[in-house]
Amino acid sequence: MSSKNRRNIKTIKTQKQNGQLVISLNPKIYPLEAIYGACYVFVDRAYLFLDGDPKKEIKVFIEGKRKLDSKKLEELAGEFKNELLDYVLRTAIAKNTKKIRETIVEKALFSAFPSEETSEEEHIESDPLGIAVPWEEKYGEKK
């Protein structure tokens, strides 16, 4: 993509301020979960801070743990945008497959685990209140 086209993208705005990046995102295009996910990937290399309004605009402030020159900052911005795209897809896959995935996993786990139900005999053996003991045994024959 040419730098001219890049500048025309309105859903992402990138600024460089005092050695840090400020990336402004449209939350209708980039869900908050995807932004969190992408930010997390960079915690080994950068300090990140989020601000803005989740309904209007999210601002991501990124500062390198080591001082980054202008070129390195630009590279970091590019990497962040790619990671963000990956996270948008991950979020979409998770959302669209959530229900059926839960059903499949639940069914698999239910079938895989040994049943915890006990036999009728075991229930009678653990009869602490003596409910299963016949009247005659408890109180003797009726006269």
Binding site: I104, V105, K107, F113
Partner: peptide
């Protein structure tokens, strides 16, 4: 194929041999 019975059976088998064993 993700929703098919074979996939379900394999996942069950995987959990049975893996998580089913040591979790229970």
């Amino acid at each position: 194929s993700w929703r098919c019975e074979n996939c379900q059976a394999r996942l069950t088998n995987r959990y049975a041999s893996y998580r089913g064993k040591y979790l229970s």
